Amino acid sequence: MHLIVMITAVVAAQWCFVGSAAGAVGGGEFYRGKVIRIVVGFSAGGGFDTFARTVARYMGKYVPGNPSIIVDNMPGAGSLIAANHIYRAAKPDGLTIGAFNGNQILGQLVGAQGINFDARKLEWIGAPGYNHDLCLLHQRTGIANAEQWLTAKAPLKLAGSAPGATTDDVAKILKEAIGLPMRLVTGYKGTADMRVAVESGEMDGLCGFSWVSVRATWRRAVESGQAIIMLQSAPKAHADLPKVPLTISFAKTPEARQLIEAGVHQPGAITYGYSLPPNTPKERVQILRKALLQAVKDPDLLNDANKANLEIAPASGEEIAQAIENMFKTPPAIVAKLKETLK
């Protein structure tokens, strides 16, 4: 009898040890001595890159085991290359975070070519900010406001990255919804390259440029009057931009309003979402969710963000996942119209 009790106790202790070891590997001890990569789908110097590098400096100290966090730029196809990489190639071990344009999820909704991921199967850990889309023109165009642009006889050249990028999709949607006179010239690696093109006279401006990015990378041009903000494509005006008209105010039909809401407003809420590959261990997902939300409250991060003119407005991983689920509930007729518009 005593022998059976002793054997049972030993087996129980062994199972407890195995369970504890597994928990340690899945959690904090797993990250000790490791390196986490944030794969940014755009070139260095743009808003996505600036956000990621700011987060990378502080997030590691909130992950048990204090791993190093580095940024790896993987530009191309409006960040679609990075999105597909996170879904198809990255190991689901909690060491690779995707920072691609959430607008690519709109591409999945409308069945765009090249989409090799399912956003609903990715693990979302949160976002450091949201996308408050703007349209800007260079002062050399001679156009001072949205009303003048909408009545322009010749289309203006807008810089874009690739189908699925905010710069491309927003411009196309606004052309369809409110008749914005524009000609899209796509192929730039990111907004850093687009800014150079606009400043050199190669392009007239761009749409789908987030106020977060403008604040961080192009504020001097705006404050000097070199770059003029024409429109803000968001549900409500930003506190910093009370006099800039809302794009949706120029929509003349219910369908036009729905196109802007489904194609611009909804994706804007998830643009800066950070994701992990499908099947990443749930414990590591929760660790990184918690670490990101702690990092974006860090006083030193907030100080750095303020110096870089970054606006920190975090969303949780759960909020991003729910927003994506809501996007896939868009009425079929609007999805069909968006597909036609974005082709």
Rank of each mutant, 00 (worst) to 15 (best):
V5N: 09
N279A: 15
T330E: 02
S213W: 04
I248A: 15
I70H: 12
P92F: 15
R220E: 02
K343M: 11
R183M: 01
G94Q: 00
G94H: 01
A165I: 03
G160T: 00
D118P: 05
D204P: 05
A192F: 03
I178G: 02
V110E: 05
K121G: 12
V55E: 08
V196I: 14
A251R: 11
K339M: 12
V222P: 09
A256S: 14
I324Y: 07
R284Y: 00
A333I: 04
R257D: 01
L122M: 12
E283W: 06
G205M: 03
Y58N: 08
Q148Y: 05
N309L: 11
A237T: 14
A251P: 02
V222E: 08
V285I: 02
K175W: 11
N84Y: 09
L134A: 14
N101G: 12
C16L: 10
V55C: 10
K329S: 06
E261G: 04
D133L: 15
T271V: 15
I81N: 14
K236M: 06
Q148H: 01
S249N: 06
V71F: 07
L206S: 01
G46H: 08
T191N: 10
H238E: 10
G268Q: 03
A165G: 02
A239H: 13
F51R: 12
D300H: 14
K282L: 00
G27Y: 07
E311V: 13
A321I: 03
N66F: 03
F328C: 01
I260Y: 06
M182Y: 03
T341V: 05
R220Q: 03
G187L: 07
L288D: 11
A77I: 10
I4M: 01
D133P: 01
L80R: 13
P235F: 14
G126Y: 09
Y58W: 09
D193Y: 03
Q14R: 05
I38Y: 10
